[in-house]
């Protein structure tokens, strides 16, 4: 019974974190066919932004979380302007691989820039909730509850934005048929910019949550990003609801394996499962056919 509660707590918390990391990735892939390998570095950026604003400048934590979202969004905008825009125009059918390689480069640069600025020693970041409550004999930290709540709120907000607003419609239209979107008068390049900014903002907040569980380090985003890749692949790249479902489902399985077989087997078992799923369904569980960008 206690083990079950522990598994559910870990699974839900990690699921929330993975889901948040995944939807940022999946949003960008779905609308522009771009796999952002720098997504993990944006998570780290968000974590450090909270540290700088709240711990160093002493401003309130909620403001610092907003600053983290802002920093992520800004990084997304810069990424678009400096790298993605010209690749969209020139790389043609090589866009997918070119943009992956380019963002791997950006990711390393950003992580090492953070290392230069903040140093290598792990820092404790200010966002957090202490205390815990009990269910029967097991202890559930309030921090986990906060993480789940914040994730759900951010995801709901994003879902509303995408489904209900004019900007969201333009994003979906561009993802579903870029040429038609152009004919409707959608400034597609501006939509791409918005998508990267949105994804960056979500990544920033996700980085805050992730670093509240672990600690601040320039590579803090690497593990969530790796998991997020897996979730995206399982769900079928670009499928947002599928990605969220995959994130929670796989996080539960991972937590179960970790408790049953030991922590180091969580990810390997997950990967085996994913490979099996992909052999069965090469486009992921809920995958749709290739998106058209060009």
């Amino acid at each position: 019974m206690d083990i079950l509660i522990a598994i559910i707590t870990t699974g839900l918390t990690n699921g929330a974190l993975y889901a948040l990391a995944t939807i940022g990735l999946s949003l960008v892939w779905g609308s522009m066919g771009m796999l952002n390998m720098a997504h993990g570095a944006l998570l780290a950026l968000g974590g450090y932004a909270v540290f700088s604003v709240a711990t160093t400048l002493g401003l309130p934590v909620w403001l610092a979380v907003l600053a983290a979202a802002g920093a992520g969004a800004l990084a997304g905008v810069i990424l678009y302007i400096c790298v993605v825009r010209s690749l969209i125009r020139t790389a043609g059918k090589n866009f997918e691989t070119s943009v992956m390689i380019a963002t791997v480069g950006i990711s390393i640069s950003l992580q090492n820039a953070l290392l230069q600025v903040y140093g290598g020693q792990p820092l404790k970041q200010p966002f957090g909730v202490s205390g815990a409550f009990r269910i029967g004999d097991s202890v559930v930290p309030w921090l986990n509850v906060v993480i789940i709540l914040v994730s759900v709120v951010v995801m709901l907000g994003l879902a509303l934005l995408i489904s209900r607003t004019r900007m969201g419609r333009a994003i979906r239209a561009t993802a579903q048929n870029r040429e038609a979107a152009l004919l409707m008068g959608v400034a597609v390049e501006r939509t791409y910019l918005q998508v990267l900014a949105l994804s960056g903002a979500v990544a920033g907040i996700c980085g805050v949550l992730v670093s509240s569980v672990t600690q601040l380090s320039p590579t803090l985003g690497a593990d969530p990003m790796l998991k997020a890749f897996i979730m995206c692949v399982v769900a079928g790249l670009g499928n947002l609801p599928g990605a969220v479902a995959a994130a929670f489902g796989l996080a539960m399985i991972e937590a179960g394996v970790q408790f049953g077989m030991g922590a180091r087997w969580g990810f390997p078992v997950l990967l085996m499962l994913v490979i099996a799923i992909l052999i069965w369904r090469p486009n992921g569980l809920f995958g749709r056919a290739q998106i058209r960008r060009m």
Binding site: C82, V83, S86, L87, S98, V99, I101, A102, T103, V104, G105, I106, S107, I108, S109, L110, Q111, N112, A113, Q116
Partner: peptide
């Protein structure tokens, strides 16, 4: 060094 290397890659791709 690593910062430079990363930027070189991104620049070369573009």
């Amino acid at each position: 060094r690593s910062i430079g290397l990363g930027l070189i890659i991104a620049f070369a791709v573009v």
